[in-house]
Design a binder for these strands. Sequence first.
DNA 1: ATGGTAGACACTCTA
Length: 270
Amino acid sequence: MNLRIISWNINSLRKRIDLLDYLSEAYTPDVVCLQETKVKDDQFPHKAVERIGFPHRLTNGVSGYNGVAILSRRPLEQGPVRDWCDRQDGRHVHAVLQPDDHDTPVELHNFYVPAGGDEPDPEVNEKFAHKLRFMSEMELWGAAMPQDGAVRVLVGDLNVAPLESDVWSHRQLLKVVSHTPVEVDHLNRIQRAHGWIDVVREVVPPEEKLYSWWSYRARDWSDSDRGRRLDHIWVTPALRPALKHAEILRDARGWSTPSDHVPVLADFEI
DNA sequence: ATGGTAGACACTCTA
């Protein structure tokens, strides 16, 4: 089967329902994983999303903040729900993509890692401490999952840009939350704990600058191009041979009333 | 060193 997965921090689903419609028309993804939906489950715009082409949906939205969702053209089975850092925060949703008869099931994890506030010191900044704690739990979670050749996909706004080429200036961002050594170290440990493969960097060489987020505060996001690659699609080694294509949809930052994040896309032939 | 913008919600918090 062909499988196109998109991950996107949409920064309010209700505000950008038309952009989701456009994305769906233009790229025909089989699965869309959203972060920062900013909508409670009981207010989720199910009808509009269904009309756009996603009859199957899983949501985890608890407030006007955070919130994640998985939208799919294929049937989904809800995976076990769990808390992270003892909070009900809407930062993780888990689905198993129901296979056709001869296909293997695909386990999907959609994460929204805490942004971490401004000060990169867990002693004085509770948000940064929460971010590191959340990532430590992700590492334990990944290490505890059997590495049994299962086909798994982890996507989301991980709020860390790991490589030097994932930020506009490595030197100037070393003390900026999202690119500090302690965060990069945490992200690398999560990756190693379960052998996750970063599919975009399988396709784009690590020397090449690549971003998925540009601040709203820049005068001209494209001209200054001070971006960071915060959004990721990872897969288990079992899925690596099936990877056909991956890209970051940079142009989406130039859409009208855009999110500050752009979609990340990956194609598999399983 | 500072402030710049965007969204939810209803005061200010989060990013």
